[in-house]
């Protein structure tokens, strides 16, 4: 969840936020899990007029959200999602956080239970640069977008896009839409088969439904 704020590029809105925001219907009930300082939630509340809620692990993040006038609870995605009733939200968002949870499968199940639609953005570990670093340097990949060393990364459950899609199938979730992005969060406008996306995408946003 530390990633959320790490990935804000300067004062610009993170690219994947734009992509995520575009998927969120006007006026819907939204829960943003791992909402960091509330940047995305703030956009959604102001621009898409959503009834927005957030969950964030760090006290600092929660404070910043509450100071912005957002409704955010301090909580841990691994433990506290069970508090929400089934179908409590139109859209549940987990942006760059799933790979930092202890039980991504259990968390994803919870997201699908709570939200009618689930928006998940994840880094793609099978991005070609990562593959190159492993293949030629024999080292765990460190990139501008994923700047951590193996020993200090909060990302304890990396996956590739293909891995994630497989998990969705296992959970009987429908992948309604996918947008692939570069490290800055810009859309990569290529129509290509999945194996290709799994190479060129540095991150991706998935829209899922039960």
């Amino acid at each position: 969840m530390a990633l959320t704020s790490q990935l804000t590029i300067g004062n610009d809105v993170r690219g994947d936020y734009r992509v995520v925001a575009d998927f969120v219907p006007e006026g819907s009930r939204v829960l943003d899990i791992g909402c960091g300082d509330g940047a995305l939630l703030d956009i959604l509340v102001r621009e898409r007029r959503v009834d927005g809620r957030g969950m964030e692990l760090s006290q600092d993040g929660v404070n910043k959200c509450v100071e912005r006038g957002l409704s955010v609870v301090q909580g841990d995605a691994d433990e506290d999602l069970t508090d929400y009733p089934d179908g409590a939200f139109d859209v549940v968002i987990m942006s760059q956080t799933l790979q930092a949870t202890h039980d991504p499968k259990g968390v994803l199940q919870e997201l699908l239970r709570i939200g009618d639609q689930v928006l998940v953005s994840i880094p793609n570990f099978a991005f070609w640069r990562n593959r190159m670093q492993l293949l030629f340097r024999g080292r765990m990949p460190v990139t501008k977008y994923l700047p951590y060393e193996w020993y200090d990364t909060p990302n304890i459950h990396f996956c590739s896009l293909s891995d994630f899609v497989e998990l969705c199938e296992e959970l009987e979730a429908t992948v309604v839409d996918t947008v692939i992005l570069d490290g800055q969060g810009n859309k990569i406008p290529v129509r290509a088969p999945w194996w290709m996306w799994n190479i060129v995408a540095e991150q991706a946003v998935f829209l899922l439904e039960r």
Binding site: Q59, V62, V66, L70, S71, D83, Y84, P85
Partner: peptide, 18 residues
């Protein structure tokens, strides 16, 4: 309390202050 408020779909913020 927060759990109950969530279950009731209420508008809630929660902070545990260090």
């Amino acid at each position: 309390v927060v759990k109950a408020l969530n279950a009731a779909a209420a508008n809630v913020s929660f902070v545990e202050v260090e």
